[in-house]
Amino acid sequence: MPRYILKRLFAGILTLLVLVTLTFALMHAIPGGPFSAADERNVPQSVLDKIAAKYELDKPIAEQYFAYLARIASGDLGISFKQEDTTVNELVKQGFPVSARLGLVAVIVALLFGIPLGIASAVKRGKWADWASMILATIGISIPSFVLTVLLMYLFSVKLRWLPVFGLSSWKHYILPVTGLAVAPISYIARLMRSSMLEVMRQEYIVTARSKGLAESAVILKHALKNAIMPVLTYLGPLVAALLTGSFIVERIFAIPGIGRYYVSSIGDRDYSVILGMTVFFGAFIIVSNLIVDVLCALIDPRMKMEG
């Protein structure tokens, strides 16, 4: 097991390196730079040179690249080009807890609704409850979250005035953003759970359990659920990573000062170091959360063996 984790960590670092290199190369391939907008204001070339020198943009690209790698390795994600005296680490420290709290609530809500919905659907297969929940789930997956969020906001905040429009200062503030974030995962989990459950219910050991004289509810909870939950757990890795690192759209719509918002604005500003730094942070987070979920799955499923 420790060998496996080490191996995965090593692979993760390699992935990160590729990610950094690609993002770095792409950033530099795009015409224009963080200070090119300054041209319009007729800033003297000498000043531009000085700025470039300050942020080491005058050095050869290879040198910039290795200097950047060295800094990342020491845990420093760089400083912002645009916001004076702000480091990327500080942006992450400010934004991440906000995004993570919102994301965590969304993950819990998604599991709390998605799993029972999927089970109910599988147990009542072909009945109206199944049809209804699967139609809802399909709608949930296909409506883009920005459309849904704006609709919800219009209905509950603007028309009915039940819920606040933006910010995150009370539990009421959480309802709309969490709904916006959780609807798609709920739908996905419900469908995943349903198909996995149907698969498991066909298995012979379910027949065995019934022939032992076990009540149907015990058959479902004790034998079927335990075996059917695996795909949902696997999906949890990317889901947690995606929701905890903040949603660009939902955070923007509700003006939530999360990490996603910084990311979006840094792209608009061509703030290289913030884009790069955040990409590295997201990448590392996704890699680690996938690893944790895989290890969890292995601990739960006795059949999975940790072999490299």
Binding site: E204, T208, H223, N227, P302
Partner: peptide, 13 residues
């Protein structure tokens, strides 16, 4: 009952 497929008829977990 004893089943045909001894693997499928035992709960893997």
């Amino acid at each position: 009952m004893i089943f045909q497929d001894p693997y499928a008829s035992l709960d893997p977990r």
